[in-house]
């Protein structure tokens, strides 16, 4: 992937958010809150760091990405379409009958979807398996997954965190979207997960804490992760759920609902789309 300027990357993130809200609005359902909070980290990964050939999604040496929190599928699909893996027009089929763009991702390499996810907490272990495979095959590819704070309440995540450190998987990197919101409310009210970075460090990971909505910090952290040897890296990005549209920001109710027509209109305006 060619290196792009921070301004270009920020524009791509805005473009992803526009498509995400269009998809969810068009589908009448879906989860855009987390897709918005993680859109900047996803952009940094896909358009700055990921070693990937959009015209050859089966390329054996490609970096892998697993969307552990499958409900944020709209963000993944928007990014893959923007990369050119498939036509952007297909995004409007999201969640509709017969689409490869299922409500939660279904394994489909032709579309760049590396893994079926949706049941939370499984992607960390799956990414570890892919990272072990790279080691067995003497490949240099790296494996990324996007984890979330809510999704990491699942015990299996911590099993995988232990395994990645035990096997010193330095080709393994976790992007951790810390937006402090889960479906039933704020995490401090439902189930506190803090301190996240300390937990990763206690499990022998390299942990980098950043503003997960700051593209400069995201790119720097991705570079630092790639240069870290002997242990896996967690990039813990503090983010704002619904980031990018003021009426959605940090409001739990926008975790898993489609915007009303009025809200959609406001979102389009705030994202700079001319009506």
């Amino acid at each position: 992937m060619q290196t792009q300027s921070i301004q270009e990357l920020t524009n791509i993130a805005r473009h992803l958010r526009i498509n995400i809200i269009k998809m969810v609005h068009n589908a009448g359902c879906g989860h855009f809150g987390g897709a918005f909070s993680s859109a900047d980290m996803l952009t940094g990964l896909f358009f700055y760091k990921l070693n990937y050939r959009p015209d050859d999604p089966f390329w054996e040496d490609r970096d892998r990405f697993v969307l552990s929190s499958g409900h944020m599928s709209a963000g993944l699909y928007a990014a893959l379409a923007k990369l050119g893996v498939f036509n952007e027009k297909e995004l409007m089929g999201f969640r509709k009958f017969g689409t490869p763009l299922q409500g939660h991702p279904k394994f489909n390499l032709k579309y760049g979807i590396e893994m079926s996810t949706g049941s939370l907490g499984q992607g960390l272990s799956i990414g570890n398996g892919m990272a072990l495979a790279a080691r067995l095959k003497n490949k240099n590819y790296r494996v990324y997954s996007l984890e979330t704070d809510g999704g990491s309440e699942s015990g299996m995540v911590w099993e995988g965190i232990m395994t990645a450190a035990h096997y010193k998987l330095d080709n393994r990197c976790v992007l951790f979207d810390l937006n402090n919101v889960q479906i039933d409310g704020y995490m401090s009210d439902v189930m506190n997960i803090h301190p996240v970075a300390d937990k990763f460090r206690a499990f022998n990971w390299h942990a980098i804490e950043i503003d997960g909505n700051d593209m400069q910090q995201i790119c720097a952290a991705l570079d630092e992760a790639a240069a870290t040897k002997g242990r896996p890296t967690a990039i813990i990005g503090k983010t704002i759920m619904g980031k990018g549209v003021s009426i959605f920001e940090n409001k739990p109710k926008y975790h898993g609902v489609a915007p009303t027509d009025e809200e959609f209109k406001t979102a389009m305006q705030e994202l700079g789309v001319q009506s």
Partner: peptide, 26 residues
């Protein structure tokens, strides 16, 4: 020994790790 991985007493991780390795052709 290089093709054997013990994940410890963590059966969910066992199946997830297996899935990742299988995704890569093993």
């Amino acid at each position: 020994p290089n093709r054997f991985f013990n994940v410890g007493i963590a059966e969910q991780d066992l199946m997830g790790t297996a899935a990742g390795l299988a995704q890569c052709g093993f």
